[in-house]
Amino acid sequence: MASYSTNQFKPGLKIMLDGVPHNIVENEMVKPGKGQAFNRVRVRNLLTGRTIERTFKSGDSVEGADIVDMEMQYLYNDGSAWHFMNTSNFEQLQASNEAVADAGQWLKGQEMCSVTLFNGEPIAVSPPNFVILRITQTDPGVRGDTATGGTKPATMETGAVVRVPLFIEEGSLLKIDTRTGEYVSRAKEE
């Protein structure tokens, strides 16, 4: 893997720190009066999601992290692992529960996801921005109430719980924004 000098630092660059891949969120060159210049960076740990600050001596080099984002289709979950397939060569990969984390609540099968690979191993999964899911449980709808703006919880077929308007009925198909976890609209039956 290539190494990067501090003058190549920029947001989005993936580097190795203490053996763990990190994503640079912010980078600023600072220089106290007349002295050594430093690069102050905020980096996000790609395994834990935690953000920390580090200061490098300007001119130092850091090893790059072998991080690749790949579009893969979600197949199924066998209880201990989540199975994804590369649709161009049909190769399959297994992602752990830790790697899939919150993304799992939106997946029922067939969705194209962005899988982040570190040294070829999945470490994170992003679901599609929008998914269409059926409600398996919610309180009975309040007919005609489309104006008051009230909401109620609804459990989706994947187990996710979403706040929906009061008029929505159990069994409905909904479009949901996975980035916010919010209801967008009703979806048509296929």
Binding site: L17, V30, K31, P32, G33, G35, Q36, F38, I52, E53, R54, T55, F56, K57, D60, V62
Partner: peptide, 23 residues
């Protein structure tokens, strides 16, 4: 402790460490 990434040579470079402290 404040997040500086130091090589062994850096950790012995008093001028560098004082520059870090000043910053």
């Amino acid at each position: 402790g404040e997040g500086a990434v130091l090589s062994p040579a850096d950790a012995a470079d008093r001028v560098l460490l004082l520059d870090f402290l000043l910053e």
